[in-house]
Amino acid sequence: MAGRLLGKRLAHFLERFHQAAFSPKYLFYTNIGISVGLSMVGDAMEQTYEKMVGEIPEWNRTRTVRMGISGLTVGVVCHYWYQYLDYHYPQRTLKTVIIKILLDQFICSPFYMAVFFLTMAVLEDTTWEELKQEIREKALILYAAEWTVWPVAQLINFLLLKPQYRVLYDNTISLGYDIFTSQVKYRKKPTEEVEPKKGK
């Protein structure tokens, strides 16, 4: 009896939390929290793998925090980008969804990656020349990966999901992509004080 009552109270609490978190009043903060949290989880998972195969000696907390901060900046981009798309293209017809997918791939994806690299460059005190070189080496790899994942993922997002769940869905799908992003970002990275050199 006590267990059933506790279960009902917990369910009631979760329902109220869900309604508040995804309400227009708090949705921005929810989306930012999701983006930061899952970016850090993705990097932690990638570092766990790198440590397991001997590429790094230990988990680099600074790197994970930096990836979380990058999640904050790109989370802001995603929040307002989806609002823009849903405001200007509210229909759920196949034609409208395809337009939104193409806009997402050709406009938001490159901008998203630019924000990511710029954020990390600021956090790592990277020079402008180093930033340009990193973009030349890594941006195309990440953008090609975007085309293998996101057109189909966004078809589901734009066609089936309610607008308030877009960033949550985006970040859930992004978890695997964030692991890949972390791997590409820190591939063959020179030795730094807070970032041990990997064995590749």
Results as ranks from 00 to 15, higher is better:
residue 149 V to A: 03
residue 65 V to E: 00
residue 3 G to V: 14
residue 70 S to Y: 05
residue 66 R to I: 03
residue 77 V to Y: 12
residue 140 L to Q: 13
residue 5 L to W: 10
residue 34 I to Y: 03
residue 143 Y to K: 01
residue 13 F to D: 09
residue 162 K to V: 10
residue 24 P to A: 03
residue 91 Q to H: 13
residue 196 P to T: 06
residue 138 K to V: 05
residue 150 W to K: 03
residue 14 L to H: 01
residue 149 V to F: 08
residue 37 G to C: 11
residue 73 T to V: 12
residue 122 V to E: 07
residue 147 W to P: 03
residue 153 A to G: 08
residue 179 I to V: 14
residue 124 E to T: 05
residue 91 Q to I: 00
residue 23 S to G: 07
residue 94 L to D: 13
residue 128 W to C: 04
residue 88 H to L: 09
residue 32 I to E: 02
residue 62 T to M: 11
residue 84 Y to H: 12
residue 102 L to P: 05
residue 106 F to E: 01
residue 6 L to W: 13
residue 183 Q to N: 12
residue 164 Q to P: 01
residue 145 A to G: 10
residue 184 V to C: 01
residue 114 A to H: 12
residue 172 T to H: 07
residue 26 Y to F: 15
residue 162 K to N: 14
residue 108 C to D: 08
residue 135 I to C: 14
residue 123 L to T: 06
residue 166 R to E: 03
residue 170 D to W: 10
residue 25 K to Q: 15
residue 189 K to M: 09
residue 200 K to L: 11
residue 43 D to C: 02
residue 190 P to R: 01
residue 178 D to L: 13
residue 81 W to M: 03
residue 158 F to L: 02
residue 157 N to A: 04
residue 159 L to I: 04
residue 104 D to V: 05
residue 177 Y to P: 07
residue 170 D to H: 12
residue 5 L to D: 13
residue 156 I to P: 00
residue 15 E to P: 02
residue 39 S to D: 01
residue 64 T to P: 00
residue 108 C to K: 01
residue 44 A to R: 10
residue 104 D to R: 03
residue 27 L to Q: 10
residue 123 L to F: 08
residue 112 Y to H: 13
residue 4 R to M: 10
